[in-house]
Amino acid sequence: MNEQLTFNNGVTMPALGLGVFQSSPEETVDAVDTALRGGYRLIDTAAAYFNEKQVGEGIRKSGVDRDEIFVETKVFISQFGYEETLHAFDVATAKLGLDTLDLFILHQPAPWIWDKTLEAYRALETLLEEGKVRSIGVSNFTPEHLDNLMQERTVVPALNQIELHPYFAQHENEAADTALGTITQAWSPIGGITFYPGFNEGGHKNPLTDTTIQAIGEKYGKTNAQVMIRWHLEQGRSAIPKSVKPARIAENFEVFDFELTPQDIAAIDALDLGKRSGPDPDAVRPPERIFDIPEA
């Protein structure tokens, strides 16, 4: 049974979901369908993943009632601005085939265009007030970004989605989230970003083959991935592991029949290298990576 997290506005969200970052449109429909049929009820996507339409198709193919599914998507940087972000909602819901969103978040802080970021968040607040979204949040916001946001805006983010896995544990970032009453959601929760093509080509170790995690898993008859997902859930985080393989999707969900000890958690915490593998949220995104989002 999936564990539930409660946002600062009372909305609840399943702790464990399916991510579709770098899932091709062709693979996304079946991945979402498989996940929902297997018990998942949280699906995370984004305008910049170019697969929102296929997420919607997967939801409908599954036959699972819309009211049972928590759908989360993101506004891309090229959609920042007040009117632009209001339009981004229309585009996202049209692609997904939905009337409302359970969670709508900003994909990046984009501090070099901070005025537009603030206007984008103001649009999220408007959508929340109008009942078009049930909750709003951010992604890749550091403690400084959160402080700057709350100096200007009113609604505390329900969620902050950040890179977080055993090799980049982000304790300070999570503490800042917790201080605000914001849930932390881990993207790349099992460390996939450490070996994804196009990221970190110089390479870190791969936590999916880490011997410390493996030894913990052997005690419970669990894989490294399952141990890492359990590590997130037991510390009150949301995790959205990505896969398009039915066996792996099922494996990632089989984490509710065991618990880690405090010693297990401490051993995994000790693996933190303190080094980011994904993009630096403060780095100016080059123009060629600020692409337009197609209309629905």
Score class of each variant (00 low, 15 high):
113 I>Y: 02
237 R>S: 06
118 L>E: 07
69 I>V: 15
234 E>K: 09
166 P>V: 10
191 G>M: 05
13 M>C: 06
195 F>V: 09
153 R>Y: 03
108 Q>N: 12
157 P>G: 02
172 E>Y: 00
35 A>S: 08
266 A>M: 09
277 S>N: 09
159 L>K: 01
102 D>E: 11
45 T>K: 01
222 K>V: 08
135 S>H: 10
70 F>H: 03
233 L>I: 14
9 N>K: 09
58 G>K: 03
119 E>K: 15
161 Q>L: 03
86 L>Q: 09
76 F>N: 03
164 L>H: 11
101 L>Q: 01
67 D>R: 14
135 S>W: 04
130 E>D: 15
133 V>F: 08
5 L>C: 07
250 A>N: 13
166 P>L: 07
279 P>V: 10
267 A>C: 01
52 E>C: 06
123 A>Y: 05
291 F>V: 08
278 G>F: 06
246 P>N: 09
220 Y>N: 11
160 N>A: 08
72 E>G: 00
22 Q>E: 13
242 K>E: 06
74 K>Y: 03
168 F>E: 04
69 I>M: 07
91 V>N: 14
16 L>K: 02
52 E>Q: 12
10 G>V: 08
71 V>F: 02
146 L>I: 11
152 E>D: 12
256 F>P: 02
99 D>M: 02
130 E>T: 01
61 K>Y: 08
171 H>T: 13
151 Q>M: 13
60 R>A: 15
31 A>V: 09
151 Q>L: 12
62 S>W: 04
61 K>G: 00
57 E>Q: 15
233 L>K: 07
50 F>R: 10
144 E>P: 00
198 G>F: 06
282 D>M: 11
156 V>F: 05
235 Q>P: 11
258 F>T: 05
218 E>A: 10
254 E>A: 15
142 T>V: 01
85 T>K: 01
250 A>F: 00
185 Q>M: 08
142 T>S: 12
159 L>P: 00
162 I>A: 01
273 L>A: 14
201 E>P: 12
200 N>C: 09
282 D>N: 15
245 K>P: 00
38 G>R: 10
79 Q>C: 01
42 L>S: 08
171 H>S: 13
123 A>Q: 01
